[in-house]
Amino acid sequence: MANFLRSTAVLIIIVSTVVLQVLLTRYFPRLLLDLPLVAVLYLTMAKESLLWTILSGTVVGFLQDSLSPGPLGLNGFTKIAVGSLTYMANTVIAIDRGATRWGLLFVSSLLAALLFLALRILFLNRNETMDGERILLSGLINACAGLPLFYLFEKISQPANE
């Protein structure tokens, strides 16, 4: 029962990050924060299971793509790939410290942005102009917002007695 409740809480986190992102960008169109990516990275680090990474990346990516003009699968693939890399990094580096988590979030955000652009160039034949400043800023925002969000996610998904 406890496991079921925790899994439900995790699913709610995933869906609510996409909903929240849609609402936030409605009022702040230039927002560079990628809440769904932060949620996937949190699950990857917290659950320490590749299955959760693939599952959350697929759900989040599918939800994002279905609400975007882009083709289905692009965001899902990006999130699964970056989540898997983070999972591998997680097995090598201890990510208990805030600074390590911050660094991992920052690098993962940069990788996600670069992979997304690469996929668009390779599969959609787009002439992308890489806005390095925007990508760096997005990475910084995701990393800075990610730490308090991780704490919040932990509070939501873990029972009070733990």
Binding site: V22, L23, T25, L63, L67, S68, G70
Partner: peptide, 15 residues
């Protein structure tokens, strides 16, 4: 009515 915006910062779209 516009009820939302793009959930990624890669596209310019509205829901």
């Amino acid at each position: 009515r516009v009820i939302g915006a793009d959930p990624t910062h890669w596209y310019q779209s509205r829901i």
